[in-house]
Design a binder for these strands. Structure first.
Length: 764
DNA sequence: GTCGGACTTATTTTT
DNA sequence: TAAGTCCGAC
């Protein structure tokens, strides 16, 4: 744990020249970078230079010659984080960064390891990685095979339980002893079906995401010589976002940490927002217990936000109990107080935000300096509608991802089947897409035959088309398909994989199928084109398929010069000068469901989410809540979120004209009243000076008025705003945006197959 | 194989 | 409310 003595002034290791990569670090950061031996926990608050510390640490280890690039294991959660890390490391150490083979996500590194030792867990090294769609379909087969009603016991639900178990590192036999909700699935058959699912995966030579970690974990536990090999290889381990690790990842890291214990975990317990998918805040809380003698370094100097923003966020997070505790500080100016605005209903809320966006724009801010962060995606719609009317360019970040689109999945299934004829799930997906007259009954028959004969479906088809067991009506198209398939396999040996896909999709009539589709065919064809283009960047089909199963994303138009609309979860790791935080109402945020399902733990996670939201702001955070909100078509009366009261009032500004009163509350006791703000609807005594925090105000005394419809908001022509020639490429409901005709941009939105609106935007 | 009506179900989402 | 799924009718 001892810091290797190195200072900016003098270093015997680094020759005469000062290590300039260390210059500009503050004392804590320097310590986090240079304490390279022994376990280290870096508690890095929001905006304290976490990534910089990690990358500089890598550089430092390399410059001191303590390890070669390939001997550093550096794990992240997302591909984006891994990419950013690599880029920044490259800037520090130059081309040597290419040698950082073990910098990547937990899953990609685990997959690499598993490919090398697959046979130890009964797989071949060419195993396929299933996406959750495949996973669900496989489970459906198993459940139906057991004659269990898939309506009462949906495969999706079990898939969710299995994921949770795998997150916790639980294997089927361990689940059997468990008495949880999932084990009760289908009258206590949960564990049994889980076991069967694992067996099927082995037969299919496949694994799901959780298996990547669990299988490697099993190998490390059972084969000491393999573990020893990795202990020798991974001399230094670095972990990003440690607060997001689940139990399986935690165990994985523990076992990979060798006797030298050169493990450095960086994280922030206050930003743990993924509990619902298995993250254990506990992992970071108990780090010191797990690694006795660990050095704990706190990064508390914030380089992002103003004083008011930090103080408001700090007051909020203070209400959480289980924390390691940090006090962020900044040398930045006080700045503006966090604004809190009560509003009548959600349409008015969107109006308020968009007017403010225009005001900011006129005052010289760029659109990309602003972001709207919502709790749940259904809240996005109101903002999209309003932004459209006002012609404010925006981009929705998140939403259905490229590789989750049906057409892309189909194309991948074709490729997967060509790559490995045994891929039954891929076969099933495309055998009748486009329609070849091979119906459900035939497919079931094929599956059955394959199962009985213990062979793959493709092999079963080859056998069956030579017999009389199938009606001619099914045999003819199947024969044709096999013939095509064999041709594609041959073709794959000679032509490049991107050309291969193009040919296959043409031959199979897949393009034609979408060309015939007037509604969304064109956008699907566009997506396929994009896919073919993207394939060129990969060496071969194998490499491409590995990429799509693990990376599952494609660089999308980042939407320069546009307001970002995203969920709070999606905003983690980002920052914006101005952040809008709408929908701070009890039940919405904090989410009722969170609180119902996980009680206090759920509430605390919601609070961390609020904390993440506020700390995204560099200069301005603007919170709003409404009195009336439509939830699933019903009007509901809302109460302001408790989080509002938890922010210290001296760092918060409420707009007097439009505080609770305007939002529709009738209370005489709202905190704004007591803070001296004059509601505009009632006479009251001299405002009293208010001192101190207002948490503890009895919120039950606030009574929202029942909803009365407000006058529909008129679309307002954009005043003096220029919309550039930017191509709008956004999501709206379930439709897509088309574009351009002459000097006009036509933005067409479709919901399902109903056209909703056309919007015309003059090109500037 | 396709269409339409009934029925169900509404967080957060990465790998 | 509104979108997705399922099932029966043609």
């Amino acid at each position: 744990m001892s810091a290797i003595p190195i200072s900016v002034q003098a270093s015997s290791h680094l020759g005469a020249s000062a290590p300039d990569y260390l210059s500009g670090l503050n004392p804590e950061q320097l310590k986090a970078v240079t304490t390279v031996t022994g376990p280290v926990l870096v508690l890095a608050g929001a905006g304290t230079g976490k990534t910089r510390v990690l990358t500089t640490r890598i550089a430092h280890i390399l410059k001191l010659g303590l390890a070669r690039p390939s001997e550093i294991l550096c794990v992240t959660f997302t591909n984006k984080a891994a990419r950013e890390m690599r880029e920044r490391a490259e800037r520090l150490i130059g081309p040597a960064a290419t040698g950082l083979y073990n910098l990547g996500t937990f899953h990609s590194i685990a997959a690499q390891i598993l490919r090398r030792h697959a046979e130890l867990v009964g797989l071949k090294s060419t195993f396929t990685i299933l996406d959750d769609d495949d996973q669900v379909r496989l489970l459906k087969q198993i459940i139906e095979g057991r004659r269990i009603d898939t309506k009462r016991f949906p495969p999706k639900t079990l898939a969710h339980f299995i994921d949770q178990w795998k997150n916790k590192g639980l294997l089927p036999d361990q689940v059997a002893k468990l008495n949880d909700e999932g084990a009760d699935f289908a009258f206590g058959k949960g564990a049994e079906i889980y076991a069967e699912y694992q067996d099927r995966l082995r037969v299919l030579n496949a694994c799901d995401f959780g298996d990547l970690l669990l299988h490697t974990l099993k190998i490390f536990t059972q084969y000491h010589e393999v573990l020893a090999q990795y202990h020798a290889r991974f001399k230094y381990i670095l972990v990003d976002e440690y607060q997001d690790t689940n139990v399986a990842q935690y165990l994985w890291l523990r076992i990979l940490t060798n006797a030298d214990r050169n493990l450095c975990c960086v994280g922030d317990d206050d930003q743990s927002i993924y509990g619902w998918r298995g993250a254990e805040v506990d992992n970071i809380l108990k780090f010191e217990r797990d690694y006795p003698g660990a050095e704990v370094i706190r990064l508390e100097r914030n380089y992002r936000s103003t004083k008011h923003i930090l103080a408001a966020a700090a007051g909020l997070i203070k209400a959480n109990s289980a924390r390691l505790g940090k006090t962020l500080w900044t040398e930045d100016q006080a700045g503006k107080k966090v604004l809190v605005q009560g509003i009548w209903d959600s349409a008015a809320e969107a109006q308020w935000v968009s007017e403010d966006v225009e005001k900011q724009k006129k005052a010289g801010r760029a659109y990309q300096d602003m972001a709207v962060l919502v709790r749940a995606s259904f809240q996005m719609r109101a903002f999209e509608e309003r932004f459209l009317m006002l012609q404010i360019p925006y981009v929705v970040i998140g939403g259905p991802r490229f590789f989750e689109r049906a057409e892309i999945r189909d194309a991948i299934a074709y490729l997967r089947l060509i790559q490995s004829p045994d891929d039954d799930l891929a076969f099933e997906r495309i055998i009748n897409v486009p329609k070849r007259g091979i119906g459900d009954a035939t497919v079931q028959k094929l599956l059955m035959q394959a199962r009985v004969a213990g062979q793959s479906v493709m092999a079963a088809v080859r056998d069956l088309i030579d017999t009389d067991e199938l009606p001619t009506r099914a045999r003819t198209p199947l024969t044709a398909f096999v013939r095509d398939y064999d041709r594609w396999r041959e073709l794959a040996k000679t032509i490049k994989h991107d050309m291969l896909l193009d040919t296959v999709l043409t031959d199979a009539g897949y393009y034609d199928m979408h060309r015939a589709d007037k509604v969304s065919g064109q956008s699907r064809l566009d997506n396929l084109k994009e896919m073919v283009n993207s394939m060129a960047d990969f060496e071969d089909l194998m490499a491409y398929l590995e990429h799509v199963s693990l990376v599952m994303e494609l660089e999308r138009d980042a939407g320069a010069n546009s307001v970002k609309i995203m969920t709070l979860h999606g905003a983690k790791g980002l920052e914006f000068p101005v952040v809008y935080l709408p929908g701070w109402e009890e039940g919405i945020f904090p989410s009722q469901r969170s609180m119902d399902e996980s009680g206090l733990r759920g509430l605390e996670e919601e609070r961390r989410l609020a904390y993440v939201g506020i700390t995204r702001a560099r200069e301005e955070a603007r919170i709003s809540f409404v009195a009336n909100r439509q939830v699933y078509g019903r009007w509901t009366s809302q109460l302001p979120s408790r989080f509002i009261d938890e922010m210290p009032i001296e760092h918060v500004e409420a707009v007097s004209q439009t505080g609770y009163a305007q939002a529709g509350w009738t209370s005489q006791e709202s905190r704004w009243d007591r803070a001296g703000y004059q509601p505009n609807y009632t006479k009251r005594e001299e405002p009293k000076a208010f001192g101190g925090n207002l948490s503890g105000v009895d919120m039950s005394r606030l009574e929202p008025k029942p909803h009365r419809p407000s006058a529909p908001a008129k679309p307002q022509p954009s005043k003096g705003l220029t919309v550039g020639t930017r191509v709008f490429h956004v999501k709206f409901g379930y439709g897509e945006v088309k574009e351009t005709e002459g000097n006009k941009l036509i933005v067409r939105f479709e919901t399902g197959d109903k056209k909703v609106m056309d919007s015309f935007v003059e090109k500037a």
